[in-house]
Design a protein around this nucleic acid. Sequence first.
DNA 1: CTGAAAGCGCTTACAG
DNA 2: CTGAAAGCGCTTACAG
Lengths: 343, 343
Amino acid sequence: MAKEITIYDIANQLQISPATVSRALNNHPAINEKTKVLVNAKAEELGYRSNKFASNLRKQSTSTIGVIVPRLNSYIMSTVLAGMEKIANEEGFNLIISQSLESQKKEIANAQTMFNSRVDGLLVSVAFDTDSFEHFQPFLKKKIPLIFFDRILENNNCPSIVIDNTKAGYEATNHLIQQGRSNILHITGNLQRNVYADRLKGYQQALLENEIPFQKEFLWETALNLEAGKEVAQRIKAMPNRPDALFIASDLCAVACISALKEMGIDVPNDISVVGFNNDPVAQVIAPKLTTIHYPAKEMGEIAVKSMINHLKGTMNLDKTNAITLRSELIVRESSRIIEHSA
Amino acid sequence: MAKEITIYDIANQLQISPATVSRALNNHPAINEKTKVLVNAKAEELGYRSNKFASNLRKQSTSTIGVIVPRLNSYIMSTVLAGMEKIANEEGFNLIISQSLESQKKEIANAQTMFNSRVDGLLVSVAFDTDSFEHFQPFLKKKIPLIFFDRILENNNCPSIVIDNTKAGYEATNHLIQQGRSNILHITGNLQRNVYADRLKGYQQALLENEIPFQKEFLWETALNLEAGKEVAQRIKAMPNRPDALFIASDLCAVACISALKEMGIDVPNDISVVGFNNDPVAQVIAPKLTTIHYPAKEMGEIAVKSMINHLKGTMNLDKTNAITLRSELIVRESSRIIEHSA
DNA sequence: CTGAAAGCGCTTACAG
DNA sequence: CTGAAAGCGCTTACAG
C-alpha cells in the first residue's frame, strides 16, 4: 500500500511548518493567499487527503449526524432519508443511519452505538413501542443536540419536526363527511405515537363539528401494513352494518384494503369511499386512484439535517425551538369521489 | 460538558497501566481474566466510552463501510440498505450511505468523499449513466475492497453480487409465450446497465427459442418510473398493431402502465398481459395482481455487507471471487393469466 | 501477564 | 502572517 501523504510531507517539500499547511488547507483567514495557493497545489500534486480521524480527535467533533428510524424500507422513511442525505452531503457531513425495526429494545442499542460513535447530533423517529426517554438522556447530558421527526417523543425539551397530523386527520375526515359519508371507520397504528394519536384527534374533531357521534368500534388499531389492509377488508365484509367510508393512516395499507374489498365485490368509492395517508406513489397507480394526504417527506429530511447543522455551526440556536411544523395537503382523487367518476 | 472518561482515568483508579486497560477492554488473550473483570467494571462505573477516532487513527482502519446507491428511496434500494444496515449493525460496523441520484458526476463526488472518509470498504450500485471506472481506481490502488451489487461495472476484477438477470428475463418472457403471447413489448431502462442489458438478453433468448423474431421497435428504453409507465400506455394506445404482452423491467412502472391502460379501456390481462420485475409490494395491491420476478433485495444487502466484513477480517478472501449470484423467482399472478381468473 | 514509550495526523493557544 | 510545541486518546512492538 502506498504511504499516505500527510501535512508534514507538504510542509517539508514547501519548507514551511505543518501548522501553516494545516491553516492553509482549512482556509484560515490569517494565512497569506499565495501560501494557500502553494499549499493547495502541492496537496493536489501529492494526492493528499485529510485524515478525519486525527482531525476529529483533535477537534473533539465528528461532522457526523446519527439517524435512527423505525425502518429504512418504507416510502416515507426512505424519502426522508433521501432528503437528509442530500443536505448532509452538500454540507460535508456524514450520516450514520440505523433502524430500530419498530422495537424499543433495538432502538436503545442503536442509541448507544450512536453515542459511542460520538455523533455530533442525533435525529430520531421512534419505534412503535417506545415508551421511555431514558436511552436519550446521555445525549442531553453531553449537550449533544437531539431532534425528533415524524414520530416524536414529547415533554423532553427536544425540538421536533412534524406535520400537523391533527389538521391532516381533520381534513381527511371532513372531506369524507362533505362527500356525504357519516359511518367513517378509522384504521390507524399504535396510538401511543403522536402521528396516529393526532390523526385520531383530527378525525374526532371533524365528527364532532358535524355532530356525528364517535364510536369506539369504528377505531381500529393495526400494524398499518399490507397484511393489515387485507385483514381490515375481511373484517368489514363480516360486519352487519358496514361503514360507508374509511380513513386509513397509511396508503400502502389503504391500497391493500381497497384491492381486497374490490375482490369481494365491494365498490370503492360508491359502497365505501377511502382516504389514505402519505401520498405514496402507489396511490396514483391503483384504480380508483387514492385520495390521500401529501406528506412532505423529502422536505422533512432536508429541514431536519439543515436545522441540525445550523445549530452545530452556531448559526441557529435550537434550544428555544419547540417544533417545526411542515405543511401537508389533502389530495382528492377518485377513491373518495362519489358523485362523478373521472373521465 | 462533563469531561470524557479515558483509559487513563481507569488506569489511575485501578493503579495499572493504560496499556493493560486498553488490552483488557479489547479482550486481549494475554490479559488476566480478573484484570479484565476489574477493568470492565470500572469502565462501566465511570461511564467510559471508547474514542473511535483515537482508535481509528492509531489502527489506521475505521470499521466503516461506504455505500453508494443510485437512490435511497426506491423499493429495491431501501430494502437492500435495510439488509445492509442489519448486518453492519450486528457486526459493529458503521455504514456511510450516499446517493448518486442517477448521475455519474454526483457518483464521482460521492466516491471521493468515501475515499476521504477512509472507508474500509466500498459497496456500489452505479448510476444510470456511469460509463467510467476511473473514480474507483483510487480504492484499488489503496487496496480498499470494492464490491459492486445490482448495477455493476464489469471488467475491473471487482467482485459483484447480482441476480441472474438473463435467466429472470428469460423466465418472464417465456412465461408470456407459454400463455400464448407472441407480440411482446419489452420496456426497460438504460441498456448500458447490466441489469437491463441482461434482462434483454433473456428476453431475446426466449423469443429465439420459440422462433419469434426479435423486433427493435418492440424494445423501448425509458426512465422506468411512474411517469414512464403512463407514457408507455399512451404510446401503446396510438399503435396500429398493439402488442399482446408487456415485459416491464420494474414493477412501479408496470403498475402505472396497467393503471393507465385500464383507464383507456384496454383489458389486462386479456388484451395485453403484463409481467413486471422486483416483486415490489405494490404488485400485490393492484387489480389484476402483477406477475413479476421476485428480487431478493434484503438478502443481497446482507450478503454484500457480510462478504465485505469477512474479507476485511480475513476470514474470506474476495480476490478470487468474481461474482455471487442470488436466486430470483418468477411469481405468477393475474396480470399474465389469460385463461382463468382467480376466484 | 504487564508496563514504558512511541506514534498515528491533525489543530490551536501562545508567541513573535 | 508564520512557527514551535503540546496534546487529542488510543494501540502495539518491544522488553521483561
